[in-house]
Design a protein around this nucleic acid. Sequence first.
DNA 1: CCCAAAATGTGGTTTAAACAACATACATGT
DNA 2: ACATGTATGTTGTTTAAACCACATTTTGGG
Lengths: 219, 219
Amino acid sequence: MNLEGIEKSRLFQGMTAKELSSCLDFLCAKEKRFRKDDVILHAGEQTSKIGMVLSGSVTVESNDIWGNRTVLSHVGKNQYFAETYALLGEVLLVDVRANEESRILFCNIKNLLEDSKKSSPWKEKLLKNILIISSQKNLILSGRSFYTSSKSCRGRLLSYLNAIALQSDSREFDIPFNRQQLADYLNLERTNMSKELSRMQDEGLIEYRKSHFKLLVSR
Amino acid sequence: MNLEGIEKSRLFQGMTAKELSSCLDFLCAKEKRFRKDDVILHAGEQTSKIGMVLSGSVTVESNDIWGNRTVLSHVGKNQYFAETYALLGEVLLVDVRANEESRILFCNIKNLLEDSKKSSPWKEKLLKNILIISSQKNLILSGRSFYTSSKSCRGRLLSYLNAIALQSDSREFDIPFNRQQLADYLNLERTNMSKELSRMQDEGLIEYRKSHFKLLVSR
DNA sequence: CCCAAAATGTGGTTTAAACAACATACATGT
DNA sequence: ACATGTATGTTGTTTAAACCACATTTTGGG
């Protein structure tokens, strides 16, 4: 098991070598290898283990009973999957599949939430680290659900641009996407979104050039 | 401060009276009252406190610079808001507003993730409880983003129905929504969704009556 | 059982998003 | 500067969702 550099990962951050060792032991940490297209976790199952991508990458996808496949997300090196399902013991609604030859570290976190007589420094650190992982995912998910809550192209653009303005504390800012990426992120079609952006510019709502935007407030 | 029954809340669950007391102290727990329509938290600010609704209810809403308001969620009694923002120190992208006369308990959880020399049983319990709160929100959010990932009405219905089938481990099940609620949840228009459902029934994909559904697989 | 109200479904129309094909602008390497 | 590839924008067409008005079914109270 080659776990070099694992002490720098989000999950084990801040632990001493000794703590890390006890922690890996407690979590029954185990590395597994998968070939491209191997299914790592099956929808409908339950799991008690968080997965950490040591090398390679995996996709989270939905394969429904009528045979439709939808890729929901990519999980790359040093990222995690299934942590929510593992913690709460919920049934997986998605398949996880190796996108290429991959090494995955599985850690059993199911019992972490149970009452325990003795606490230890590594346990507290581990809890904090998982809480950060969970919160960060939360932030990403709530952003996405926020931006796509409007049904219209314009509504989504407005809520997105407004949010970035809030984050950058300025009405002028750069977004971290090109047009295609933005369209994908907001679940829109690129050319249609471009159309809407120029309409909004014509109406004097915004000004933009490439990824630089400026929000205008008429009075 | 009337905190009766607070030891049964998700946040403080499993603590002894003594632990609860130290915990409330550590969190600088403070109750505040708000009148209907008072803004409790402003978009653009940062907060270090999780909010727990003791009585009344609040709405999470987006108010953009062009004056559009969108209600994103309701938070009722014994539910929480702003936990992710507080933990990660992120800028709020939403306003939180009192939906009626409400009592809110604010708990400073910002320092909870910092290194600390001494651990205590209540701290570990608190971390676990917040982790559960975070994970549960995660589950709700990822479900929603999952079901709305398709652009088409049919796609969303299929992914939703498929997921419920997985959860209930059966191709026949009841959904917890009426038509209007399902349409809102999937971000669709009710009558259009009804039309699509009957089309799907005509095509032999599904059978349904009210909230009872059966998934059919043709061969 | 009957009535009223609520929930669900249907048909027709309008609107806007998706899609396709192409034009223009921009960036990069030579 | 040129050529090439990529990103972005534009125009026109198709398609499907939203919308509207109303029919039908279901539900719960009296």
